[in-house]
Design a protein around this nucleic acid. Structure first.
Lengths: 104, 104
DNA sequence: TTGACATGCAACCAAATGGTTGCATATTAG
DNA sequence: CTAATATGCAACCATTTGGTTGCATGTCAA
């Protein structure tokens, strides 16, 4: 879970996920074309995404296909974000009340 | 949005959000008691959470109350995570169709 | 008023991060 | 076979990050 959050923290990595979301199974070089950095930098980002289980790879000859795995994102949405959403309305009205009390 | 993702990347900060979720409006010292670091370190984390608009503060005399703001988390859930969840179901049904076609 | 308490600010430090370059390896095409 | 292509590995570097210590400021209570 921590690995997923840290993987999502970087905009470049989110852009890579976006790219895979648009076209799944892209090769490393294909992903590099859309990114403004060296291939090796992209490789590092992909390794972090893989470690967070957000990307799965399949070796195909000398190429490596990258597939998006949305399960960890789904888990975060359900197990972590859901908790805060449930408390959302209550917290907002609570904050509003306190602010109004501050300024009579 | 980027600030929110980066703020959520650190486990200490997520723990602070948890703490505020359990008891909203806590003071800095109160938040420090649950954290295993100096007050100044907690201050820095809270500043990052504030900059991401995840935490709002109200000065109350010599104390400062911290309130959780779940709106940015909600926005991420709706605008960003939702996209991948939609793709997930599509991918699943796609996989299901392929499997069914594979095995007639 | 004075001392204790809550927070703020700044300098400093080690480690992690994000990127580069250079070279190695493996596979496919001609 | 050989050359081009696709990826892997490692060393190196600058900046950011997460933490510390030390001191300053502001507020409440006795």
């Amino acid at each position: 879970m921590d690995a997923v959050f840290r993987a999502l923290a970087d905009p470049t990595r989110r852009q890579l996920l976006d790219s895979l979301h648009a076209r799944n199974g892209q090769t490393l070089n294909a992903l590099c074309e859309r990114a403004d950095m060296t291939r090796q930098a992209v490789t590092k980002h992909l390794a972090i995404l893989e470690e967070a289980n957000l990307v799965t790879t399949v070796r195909n000859g000398r190429e490596k296909e990258h597939y998006l795995n949305p399960v960890p994102i789904n888990e975060i949405a359900e197990r972590w974000i859901g908790k805060f959403e449930r408390g959302r309305l209550a917290a907002l009205s609570d904050l509003k009340q306190r602010l109004e009390r501050e300024e009579p």
